[in-house]
Write a protein that binds this DNA or RNA. Sequence first.
DNA 1: GATGAATGAGCATTCATTCAT
DNA 2: AATGAATGAATGCTCATTCAT
Lengths: 199, 199, 199, 199
Amino acid sequence: MAPRRPEQFEAIREKSREKILAASLELFANKGYDATSIDNIAKKAGISKGLIYNYFESKKSILLAIFDDAMKMGEELLMGQMNIKDPVLRKKAIIELTFDMIKQRPDYVKFLTVMALQPGVMADTKDFTKNAYKKTEEWSKLITGKAKKEAVIDTLMIGAMMDGITLNFIIYGEQYPLDELKQEIIKLYCGPEKKKKKK
Amino acid sequence: MAPRRPEQFEAIREKSREKILAASLELFANKGYDATSIDNIAKKAGISKGLIYNYFESKKSILLAIFDDAMKMGEELLMGQMNIKDPVLRKKAIIELTFDMIKQRPDYVKFLTVMALQPGVMADTKDFTKNAYKKTEEWSKLITGKAKKEAVIDTLMIGAMMDGITLNFIIYGEQYPLDELKQEIIKLYCGPEKKKKKK
Amino acid sequence: MAPRRPEQFEAIREKSREKILAASLELFANKGYDATSIDNIAKKAGISKGLIYNYFESKKSILLAIFDDAMKMGEELLMGQMNIKDPVLRKKAIIELTFDMIKQRPDYVKFLTVMALQPGVMADTKDFTKNAYKKTEEWSKLITGKAKKEAVIDTLMIGAMMDGITLNFIIYGEQYPLDELKQEIIKLYCGPEKKKKKK
Amino acid sequence: MAPRRPEQFEAIREKSREKILAASLELFANKGYDATSIDNIAKKAGISKGLIYNYFESKKSILLAIFDDAMKMGEELLMGQMNIKDPVLRKKAIIELTFDMIKQRPDYVKFLTVMALQPGVMADTKDFTKNAYKKTEEWSKLITGKAKKEAVIDTLMIGAMMDGITLNFIIYGEQYPLDELKQEIIKLYCGPEKKKKKK
DNA sequence: GATGAATGAGCATTCATTCAT
DNA sequence: AATGAATGAATGCTCATTCAT
């Protein structure tokens, strides 16, 4: 057989890495970090235990990689709304975006929320809290368009609202009425304006 | 010498038990259940590992004891508001109560929130979700005075709000402006003065 | 109250000691040495854990005390048959004695047999094997009245027989037909002589 | 480098498994089950503690594996004698077989006997007593060729005899005159030549 | 003499990580 | 790149023993 070309190696590597990350995300989100063993990950990813260490230095570094992916994804989604000029519409867009994320990527959302409350897991490796705070300030500006005092409270309220809904969705599961709550929030924070709510 | 009298033993026991519970509460709330070892608890409580098993059957039974304490405390606070007749005032009282709880017993609040998001920790021993749900229904009635359909969404909103604020308080700590948010919520859900709820 | 007189103290001491030995014997015989905890013994004896160490240096020393008691009891019973002059009658008497012991003190018999096969338990403290061997030789002389070569085999046979029956009695319990086997052995080893078997 | 081939792994596994079983058999037989620690086994097997759990679920499952091996071996030996037609010859063959087993696999014999007398060790996992009883019945038929009433006592006698000799061999070791006792038993139970069983 | 709270070494078991192939 | 056998530190838990009262 002819030796594989560099791109092929790269493709294989990337594929294995993805399998590991996907398996880990699901397990971390559903069982928690501590309760997930490297063996669990290897079995779910369909590879051997040893191979994982070919791609990641340690169990914690898998966690961090997922964390970075999740943050990056969130950031990209958020940045995509930057071009909406009207502040109210932008606020609405971002709220809808958040609900979309909860529904379409519950694993990421679950993962981030679960990790946020395992300080012992994240704390020593990433400065999670500071990071999150900076994000909130950025959000604040993005959402309201201005960094005034009252705007911060408004942002914190919306942020708390979204976090609370996410948390309840995680705990109660599918029975939690996400859609009705979305309408309610939009009514509450974006005013009852017209009626073209759905994009 | 004569052996200690039963009351003396009881006093000693109660003191040790409290030390264990206090140490466990703090560690579970801050590091999570899995990441806290019996050795951690013993060291923080200033006693030996073995003694813990003189008071609790297992690590999980410590968790349950704390959980029961926390629930009992919450219930007592809540029940104290039952005699408020006016629904709006009662709703306001309960919101204020929740904020009080966050400020006065952040340890319990943190503990309960962290546990709610540690999949598989509470799940198999107490029917945490079902329990929490029942609580929500009770809340719903307490807050609105009636269990109508539209009232449920209202209750879920307030619940999510409070959970979200709790979560953010846990993550951000003292810098999180609890008082301002309390005023904002009361303005939003109990009306500024009369009965105009929505702004 | 007048202080207790020395005899009273002695009586109390003796009584507690007996309670500990009786409880331990039963537990060691039925659960085994390792599976019996000091706490088990204290509870069954109706005293406190600490008191046990007032009478015995260690768990193992309780074992040895029981062992010595059991050996002494066996010896006394055996010596009681020394005055029977006729060798055959003496052999018969000793066999019957052994069966009596199995039926009347199954706890001691069980204890000794169980201990005999836990070399790790006895070995390092008493030279159990050597001791037992000496006993066999004594038996041999007692039973047959002479220490000839062929007599040793005879004694070993009877000894093995009795041990085997004891072992099977321990394993199978009450359903094991001790009486029939006794008749059979007597027939086999003492000849079928007359018919006045029962004393 | 290429990973090992499945057969290579299988060979490695089999070798390690054997080392664990051999070490455990020796320790269980000599020290008893409770007194043998996983660490003892690992050290004697020349491997790490953790590796044991790569091959056996628990300490007890090692015990059961050895037990099954021992029973299988015994059964195979026994079944090999089924084709002897003459009852007396068959009885003799089985007695000789038992002595062979004691001499050739004293470890298994010791193990089985020690386990039989460790209350609560086998009891809860395998129905040891019932199992042993069934064996006795099989023996009974094998030995006498018929399951008549009087034959049962005969079988029990021979069984007790063999158990007693095994027990004494375990306790006294090599100095115990197995061969002489074998001749004696055969003389006693199979008749010196013709059919005069009782001397 | 008597009590039971307290200790700490030891045990079975788990699991992240290493490594020979 | 890939495998899984092997390691050893750590964990929850037990229990003989000590000791203040």
